[in-house]
Structure formats: C-alpha cells, structure tokens
Design a protein around this nucleic acid. Structure first.
Lengths: 339, 339
DNA sequence: TTCACAATTGTGACCGTGCACATACGACCA
DNA sequence: TGGTCGTATGTGCACGGTCACAATTGTGAA
C-alpha cells in the first residue's frame, strides 16, 4: 500500500506527511524538535523521511522564516595568515549551523569592494566577516553603511566596534626589543604596504619601542609583503652597510632579505640579525631558522565567528574580547652585533 | 503622494509594483530582462527600485525557480596549491552569477566527508567542486552517489569523468630527467602522503623516468608535505650519504631537507642537488634558490568552474579539457654530482 | 462521570518570486 | 467592419516551509 510520489521533484514535508499519515505541520515539528510530539509519531515521521531521502528545502525555510542562516565572507587574496583564519571561520560557522559564502577581492578599488559586498548582500547574508586588512577597504566599508552586522579582522576601533585582531603593536615591540637587547642600535624596519592596517600597527610598534629605548630610528622601507620585494630591498640596503639588524613585517620579506644577504657574502646571523613576523610553518627551516613573531590565526578565526554570532543574537553575548597577544619565537637568525 | 511602506520588512516586488503603478509580474519581468516591456514602464520600475533600495529575495527566487544558483566547494585544508585555486574558483563562479559555499574538511574519515557533503547538499547546491586530493576522499565520494554534478581537481578518470588536473606525471618526469641529465645516479624521492593522488602521480612520474633511463631506483620516502618532515627525513637520510640528489614532492619538504643538509655541513648545490614541486612564491629565495616545477593553479580553478557550469547546462559545452602541463624552473639548487 | 487543563495534532494563511494563462491594446489586412 | 496577430500587461496559483490559531485527544481531580 505504498502511495506513489510525484517524480522529478524532491519530496516535501507534505509528501512525508501523507505517507506518514499525519499533517504537514507535524512533520515540520519533527524537523524543528518541537517538544510536544508523541515519540511514536516522531519515529514514524523520521522513518518516512529516511525512506524518502527527504531533505528540507533551504530556500523555503529561509523564505518563510526570513532568515538565511548564511554568513558572508569577504576576503582579500593574500598572505599566509588570513588563509589559515578562513578555515577556522568556516568550521566555526558550520558548527553553529550557518553556511558561509565567500567573495574574493582581487582589487581594492571602491567599485570592486562595493560589488563584492553587493554580491554578498544579494544572497541575504545575515552577517559579514571581512578579512581584507587594507585601510582602503575599511574606508569604503565605512561609507557603505552595510545593513547587516559585520566583523572585521583588524585593529581599528571603528564602526560598530566589531573588530578583532592580534595585538600587532605588542608583537612588533617585542621583536624590536629583542634586537635592542642584543645590542643592536642601527635597525631597519621593512614594513608592509602603507595601506595595510597590520603593516601600520607593526610599524608603529617598532617606532614606539625604538623611541622608548632612545635608539635613533631610520626611516622604514615600505614593501609589499613578498619575498621578491625583500630580496630587492635587501640588495639596495646592503650597498651601504649602515645597519646591523632588520625587522621585517612578515616572514616572506625576511626570507627575501636573507637571500640578498647571502648574495652579498654576509654570514648570518653573525653579520646581520633578522626578525620576521607571522611564524609561517616554513620559518623554522629558513637558513638560519628565522626568529619571528607567532600569531594564532585559527584562534582569531574562531573568535571572529563567536563575535558575529553574538551580534546576530545567536550564541553567548561575548564580552568585548581582548586582542590575541602574539609571541616572539627566538631562533637562529638573531645574534649580537659584530663589533 | 508617496505611499508608505511596511516598515521593518524589506521591500518586495509587490511594494515596487504598487509604487510604480504596475502589477508585480511586470516588476518581475523587469528583473528578468523580459523582452517585451515598454521602455517607459521599465524605466519607471527601475526608478522605484532605486528609491526603495530594492533587492530581490534570493530565497524566494530559489524556491520559485527551483534553482539555487549555488555551487558547493569541498576543500581539504591543505598546502599552497589548492589555496590559490580556490580564489580562482570563487571568482569564476561569481562572474557566472553563481554563489559559492565552502565546506572545509579537517579530517578525511568517511564520516567527516559525508557530513561535509551533507552540509553542502542541505543548501541545495547545484554542483560541487572537490579539492581534496586524498585518495580516500574519492573513494568515499564514489560510494556516496551524489545527486548533483561535480568536478574534482585530480587526475583519476573516475566517476563521471569530470575531473581536472595538472599533469603531475609529466612534471615529475621532467624534474627527474633534469637530475639524471646532470649526471646524478643516486636519487631519492621524498614523496607526499601515500593517499594523496598528486603524491602518487608524482611518485609514478619519478619511477617511470628512472626506469626508462635505466637508473636504479631507491625506495621513495613517504612524507606529509611539511617542511618539518623534510627536515627530519633529511637528518635520517644524511647519515648514510649514499645519494647525490633528491626530488621532493613539494617545495616545503624541499626546504626542510635543505635545512638538514646545511646542518650536516653540506654545501649546496655542490654536495647535493634538490628539486621541489609547486613553485611557491618563496621558492626563488630559498638558499640556494630552488629548482622546482611550476603549476598554474589559478588556471586550474578557472577551468574547473567552466567544466562544472557546462555540466549544469550553463556556459559552452566545454570539450573534455586537456590537463595543464607544468613547467620545470631551473634555479640554483641543482648541479652536477660532486665526483 | 464530568470538567479543567495540558499535550498533541490539524487547518489555513503567508513569506517573495516566477510561471502559465488570460486579457487589453494597437496595427494591419481582407 | 470584423478578424487576426503581436506586443504589453494583469491575475492567480505554486514553490516548501513556518506561524498563529483551532481542534482533538488524553489525564487527573472533583
């Protein structure tokens, strides 16, 4: 006495209801774990669902509830760090029953940013996570007056204060202090691109520490995060050997700089001390192994979702979270100055 | 004479219709670029949409059309390569008017894989892209009998033949040939994890080339892609200096191996030749700069979406695409053997 | 038994859009 | 003048869930 089903169409709660001999509303209740359903009824319905390979239709649910359970992720194609936060974000969101829709940003001109946000808004995302740490992106976001809660992964107390970050300044200060403590007095800083928030914070940390310790500073070099840049900058800088240490704003640039040093015949770390930032997994195997600052990107990603969910009214009303403090990892690329 | 709108609710086509003095269906036609609409009518409707900041409701659209315009991306947390394909996939999909939903795979046990696929299916994705090149993932996929078209990024002609890949074998053969041509006869292969399809293909390429050139092979070392592994494996291998060259299955392991070489007092490339695979952006700045095999991951990602879209009936019926051929990049980490 | 009340289940409308079909309008031809 | 056709627009319902509310059943106390 099997009733047959409309073929070519996925089964709906009404199909399930008919076969289970209940009303569609009862099926809906089973789906949503409504408290007052007789166990026997529930079992029967679940059995039919199983038989029919029933899957709730997300669009219908979103439509009738007015909630999409989707989070948008705006990410700028970029370095190691963000990439490892992204996985954490997706995992955390999924665990909380949300879907994640990603939009990539290849350019940071206002049009692209707006287009990407638009793309996300068009799918009725309930919240947005922004991992695009360029200053410019934030400026655009600020003007866009986005209608949904959003969280940014960077350290500027702007907008709705929903921003999270690693405490870049402290990390940079530690790195700088380490060099000063070793006895270095001529220290360059290989900074990240001017318009990156992280780059700015690291540079500030460097400058502040130098200032506090009364060490005369040399103008930072503005780079672009790549190993290539570190290499070329190194070639330039090493013409005048007027420094004994360098603090690079990320590990890639540090690597490129090391390359330039070896090419110039320097022995590391005897002739030159180098500190990086990020602690990418390869840093321990550079030659010499790189002294750097470790950040916990995964933790950052998880907190990010926690914060967003609390904005959405889901999850605990997370207190304004403290920034994650990064940690200096001393390896073989730093030593006292040669004289 | 502005009619006011229900507040607290986003405007719908009916709201637009009312204000524009037309029927909701006319508004729908404007949205979908229906050919027979008077220009004046269309302009009027568009104006009202603009005024109201109207956004079509995606859920409603998906429900009524029965299409979600969403693609699922199943990705295994992994190395450099896939990461750079992902951005390309997302861009290409967005350009084609699709949304991308990502599910990460942290474990590759069958339950996790099934859960991830389930997560994607639950949002009514129309197709799935799989970037999870472990053999196991494919085995599970094969058994799961997924109801939507899907494309995989790897070189096994299985399932619906919708798989794309870089021709790993050819790349590996070229790398190996390069070492043999330099005069090396004792060559180790530092392979990737057994269960990765790429790892297998590269190992096969290595073995085939060695065989064809009548060079006796030594058993490959099975690694885990990390620089750490390359380092530790290197320490072991270098106890017996019974080889003059090594072909590592990715650049990270090559880096770790170089670390071990220097620690053992070897001068590179004089005492040891090393070839990697992938050409990550940092490889040119290793010490010495790494000879490696370059793959175009972005192109791979783009083709991937093209293939999936054609399965979905969108886009041109792309002919079965040829695999992308990687290219050997010779740098400073290879030289003739010492004797 | 009978009533109050809680537990369980059913009914119908609604969410916002697209589809099938009906209708109105104008042009053109016989 | 009437009929035919093509363009432009309107009407009503379906999509698959959820919500508010109504109806039914079961349980214990009076």
């Amino acid at each position: 006495m099997t009733l047959d089903l409309p073929k070519g169409r996925a089964p709906s709660i009404r199909d399930v209801a008919r076969l289970a001999g209940v009303s569609h509303q009862t099926v809906s209740r089973v789906l949503n774990d409504h408290p007052s359903i007789r166990d026997s009824t529930k079992a029967k319905v679940l059995q039919v669902m199983e038989d029919l390979q029933y899957r709730p239709n997300r669009a219908a649910r979103a439509l009738s509830r007015g909630r999409s359970r989707t989070i948008g992720l705006l990410s700028a194609e970029s370095a190691y760090g963000p990439a490892s936060s992204i996985a954490a974000i997706q995992d955390a969101a999924r665990e909380a029953g949300y879907y994640v829709n990603t939009a990539n940003l290849t350019n940071v001109d206002p049009e692209s940013i707006e287009a990407a946000i638009d793309h996300l808004m068009n799918q009725s995302v309930e919240g947005i996570v922004v991992i695009a740490p360029q200053v410019r992106v934030f400026d655009v976001l600020e003007q866009l007056s986005i209608e949904v809660p959003f969280v940014t992964l960077s350290s500027r107390g702007l907008l709705n204060d929903n921003s999270l970050s690693v405490d870049q300044m402290t990390g940079a200060r530690e790195a700088t202090r380490h060099l000063i403590d070793l006895g270095h007095r001529q220290i360059y800083h290989l900074a990240g691109p001017q318009d990156w928030i992280e780059a700015e914070a690291r540079m500030r940390g460097f400058l502040d520490e130098m200032w506090d310790r009364d060490v005369p500073t040399m103008a930072p070099i503005l780079g672009d995060w790549t190993a290539d840049f570190g290499y070329h900058a190194g070639r330039e800088l090493l013409r005048m050997r007027d420094f004994t240490a360098i603090f690079a704003s990320n590990d890639q640039m540090a690597l490129g700089f090391m390359h330039a040093c070896r090419e110039a015949g320097l022995v590391l770390p005897r002739d030159m001390s180098i500190v990086g930032f990020d602690d990418i997994p390869e840093a321990a195997h550079f030659w010499p192994p790189l002294t750097t600052v470790r950040q916990d990107f995964a933790e950052l990603g998880r907190r990010c979702i926690a914060l967003l969910l609390s904005s959405l009214g889901d999850g605990p009303p997370s207190a304004r979270p403290e920034p994650i403090v990064p940690k200096l990892v001393v390896r073989g690329s730093t030593a006292p100055p040669p004289f």
